[in-house]
Amino acid sequence: MASQGTKRSYEQMETDGERQNATEIRASVGKMIDGIGRFYIQMCTELKLSDYEGRLIQNSLTIERMVLSAFDERRNKYLEEHPSAGKDPKKTGGPIYKRVDRKWMRELVLYDKEEIRRIWRQANNGDDATAGLTHMMIWHSNLNDTTYQRTRALVRTGMDPRMCSLMQGSTLPRRSGAAGAAVKGVGTMVMELIRMIKRGINDRNFWRGENGRKTRSAYERMCNILKGKFQTAAQRAMMDQVRESRNPGNAEIEDLIFLARSALILRGSVAHKSCLPACVYGPAVASGYDFEKEGYSLVGIDPFKLLQNSQVYSLIRPNENPAHKSQLVWMACNSAAFEDLRVLSFIRGTKVSPRGKLSTRGVQIASNENMDAMESSTLELRSRYWAIRTRSGGNTNQQRASAGQISVQPAFSVQRNLPFDKPTIMAAFTGNTEGRTSDMRAEIIRMMEGAKPEEMSFQGRGVFELSDERAANPIVPSFDMSNEGSYFFGDNAEEYDN
Rank of each mutant, 00 (worst) to 15 (best):
M13I: 12
V100C: 05
E254T: 09
R355P: 08
A284M: 01
E443A: 06
Q327M: 09
G30I: 00
Q409I: 13
S287T: 14
E320A: 10
D160T: 08
R199S: 07
I253V: 07
Y219F: 10
I444K: 07
Q241T: 04
P474I: 03
G431D: 02
C223Y: 12
A493G: 10
N76E: 14
G349K: 06
K48H: 13
N498G: 08
P410R: 01
S326A: 05
P322G: 07
N224W: 08
G35L: 06
Q168L: 04
F206D: 01
D240W: 07
R361W: 02
V109C: 15
A284E: 05
K357M: 11
Y97F: 14
K77P: 02
N492R: 13
K198Q: 14
G94L: 08
K31G: 14
A471T: 09
A403L: 09
T15W: 04
A337T: 10
G54D: 12
P95L: 03
S402M: 01
Q308K: 00
S359C: 11
S467K: 14
Q231F: 02
M32W: 07
L61V: 15
K227N: 12
A403M: 00
L56S: 12
Y40P: 05
S9R: 00
R65I: 01
G249H: 09
W139R: 07
R152L: 03
A233T: 15
L108G: 13
P161S: 15
Q308H: 15
V109R: 06
G393D: 01
G209Q: 07
M426R: 06
N395G: 09
E294G: 13
S60L: 11
S28L: 04
Q58I: 05
M163I: 15
A411R: 04
R221I: 09
H140W: 08
L143Y: 05
N76H: 00
E18Q: 06
A442Q: 01
G404M: 14
L166I: 07
A323V: 13
T130F: 04
T232A: 09
N498I: 14
L328K: 08
K273R: 06
D128K: 02
E495H: 05
G268A: 03
R342A: 07
D491H: 04
T350Y: 00
Y296N: 08
P410H: 09
R348H: 08
F346T: 09
L328S: 05
G5C: 14
N498R: 15
A401S: 13
E11L: 04
P89K: 01
A278R: 03
M481V: 02
